[in-house]
Every structure is written in structure tokens, then in C-alpha cells.
């Protein structure tokens, strides 16, 4: 998977604990285009491990001169948000993935309700540009604890006018999901990003009101299949290959000079299937190829995306 090499060109504090980063292409050229709702996965080399976190792109998809992300310092940070807040400076070089969109606006919808809670505003920042451009009907409902937690509020007010509805909890303005969803015309799409409780409440309310699943959207990130390090024992070639936490089994075997067949590297084609002879742990299947029964049996593995939680796994190779 090819990465994009970028340089941090600007950092701003936009709300309590939220930093806003601007990236430009390291080669000085244009970055790839993207669609509203897209995210990138930022690789953060911290000591001998690499964190990979997904962040929504905030800028207008029409502007390919830079990408922007916002990072909130997580209280229980595994390291990623802390790294972004403490280690990354203007001029830092980073590798990011190509944009991926798992939270797109439905292009067949005519009316869209966007519901953001706090830092959950981020995927909507690019979506509103697309919606303004295509002229689809929409409202953005932005709920936040207080004005100092409301990142990008001035920018949004200027861009959206009365399409933006703020719900400032410090002023006692509570977003009434039931009322909001009840008054929408048939065929409206709703999109939510925010704390788990808000997302769950919105989905439950929409279901209660009879909204079809295809009209209820919540953001999902593509979780890179990473895990704990372990060792592959190759029975036929009598080799041991160490798999680091951040690399796939296929990549680790390739790096060790083992010839493993592959095609799609995405867990779909079945070409890299290998026979599992033994393991002292459990296989974590991430592929779309093996049936549930095969996954349960634990005799096969697709090393391009799957791995194991174990100290060793022995393969017939």
C-alpha cells in the first residue's frame, strides 16, 4: 500500500485540547482529490513502534494544495494523539494513507441531516463543502459542551449561515433528537458522528421512528489490522519469522526472503491462503475469503490481512 509523504505546514489550537494540522505534499505538488467524509491514516513513528490513527480530512475537497486534520488529545491516549500534540512540529515529515471514505453522503438523497457532537464535527467539515457545491438540502446540528469546546464554529457560521444549528450545552441547549428526526420529510438521510452515547441514541431514535437502515449513517474508520508481535515457524523451510506489531504476516515473510504467493493483498482473492499446523494462541481472521466454518476450524489463514494472538504459529510452507 503506497503512502503519501507530507510535511506539516501549520499547527493551530482551535479549541480546548484540539490541535488543527495542515499538511502539504513533500514533493511540493498537489495531493490526491477526495470526497466529503474521507479520512486518512497517519503513521506516527514513536520509538520502536508506529502508531496508526485515522483522522477525518477537514478541508474543501476541491482544494488539493493541502490536507487538514484535527486531533483531540485523548485522556487515555494509546500514544497517537499524544504524539501528534507533543512530537509533531511545523516541518515534521509524516507518512499518511491515501484518502478513504467510509462515511460518504448519499448521492441519491435530496435532504440530509448532519449531527455532530464535539470533535465529531470533523468528518462534516469536508462534507458541507460537497453539499454546498451540489446544492442538496441539508442542516448541520452541532452539539458542544461550551463555546470553548466548539472547534471551527466561526468558520462554520460564516460558511453555512442558517444551515448551521448550534446546541450549546452550557446554555442549556439540549439537542432533541426525537423532535429533529420527527419533523423530517420522508426520504431524508441522517448522519451522526460524536460520542458513543449520542450515536447510539440517534440510531435508536431513528429506528423507533421507522427510518430505514439505508438512511441512517454513522462514521466508521477502517481499522488497520495491527496487533501484538509473534513468531511464524515455517515447517518446510525450517525458518522462523518474527512478525512485528505493525506489519502483516505476508510483509514479514517477504522481508525475510520467503516466497509467498499473493494477488490482492486485501483478503479477498484467496491466493495467499496458507495451512496452519499449530499455534499456542488464537487466529485473528480479517479476510473476506474463508467461510465462517473455515475460520472457526483454524486450519487456514490469509497472511495478507490476518494474524494471530499467540507466541508462535506454525505454517505448512
Amino acid at each position: 500500500m503506497s503512502a503519501l509523504n507530507v510535511i506539516v505546514s501549520n499547527i493551530e489550537l482551535v479549541a480546548d485540547g484540539i490541535r488543527h494540522f495542515t499538511f502539504i505534499a513533500a514533493d511540493g505538488g498537489e495531493l490526491p482529490g477526495f470526497s466529503g467524509g474521507s479520512h486518512v491514516v497517519v503513521s506516527m513513528p514513536a520509538g520502536n513502534r508506529t502508531y496508526r490513527n485515522a483522522y477525518s480530512l477537514l478541508s474543501s475537497p476541491a482544494d488539493r494544495s493541502n490536507y487538514q486534520i484535527a486531533v483531540r488529545l485523548q485522556e487515555q491516549s494509546r500514544g497517537g494523539s499524544r504524539f501528534m500534540h507533543e512530537q509533531v512540529k511545523v516541518g515534521t515529515r509524516l507518512d499518511i494513507s491515501w484518502p478513504v471514505n467510509l462515511f460518504p453522503i448519499s448521492r441519491v438523497g435530496h435532504q440530509h441531516i448532519l449531527v455532530a457532537g464535539g470533535i465529531g464535527i470533523t468528518p462534516f467539515m469536508s462534507q458541507v463543502h460537497d453539499l454546498l457545491r451540489t446544492g442538496a438540502g441539508f442542516e448541520l446540528h452541532y452539539a458542544f459542551r461550551s463555546p470553548r469546546h466548539a472547534g471551527f464554529i466561526d468558520q462554520l457560521k460564516q460558511l453555512l449561515g442558517n444551515k448551521l444549528v448550534c446546541h450549546d450545552q452550557s446554555q442549556g441547549q439540549i439537542l432533541d433528537l426525537h423532535a429533529l428526526l420527527s419533523r423530517q420529510p420522508l426520504g431524508t438521510h441522517v448522519y451522526v458522528c460524536g460520542p458513543d452515547g449520542m450515536v447510539d441514541a440517534l440510531i435508536a431514535t431513528a429506528h423507533e421512528l421507522g427510518w430505514p437502515d439505508a438512511h441512517i449513517h454513522n462514521e466508521e474508520f477502517l481499522a488497520p489490522p495491527v496487533g501484538e508481535p509473534f513468531t511464524i515457524r515455517l515447517r518446510q523451510s525450517q525458518k522462523n519469522v518474527d512478525v512485528g506489531a505493525e506489519v502483516s504476516m505476508l510483509e514479514a515473510m517477504e522481508a525475510a526472503g520467503v516466497d509467498v504467493p499473493y494477488l490482492c493483498r486485501g483478503g479477498a482473492c484467496g491466493r495467499c491462503e496458507l495451512e496452519v499446523l499449530a499455534t499456542d494462541g488464537v487466529i485473528e481472521h480479517h479476510d473476506h475469503y474463508l467461510s465462517d466454518a473455515e475460520k472457526g476450524a483454524g486450519k487456514k489463514i490469509m497472511p495478507c490481512v490476518s494474524r494471530a494472538k499467540c507466541s508462535f504459529i506454525e505454517l505448512n510452507l
Partner: peptide, 9 residues
């Protein structure tokens, strides 16, 4: 597989 097809790949 196609639904997870990515730009650049």
C-alpha cells in the same frame, strides 16, 4: 473486496 477498494491502488 471492491467496496474496500482504495484510491491509489
Amino acid at each position: 473486496f471492491l467496496m474496500s477498494l482504495q484510491q491509489g491502488n
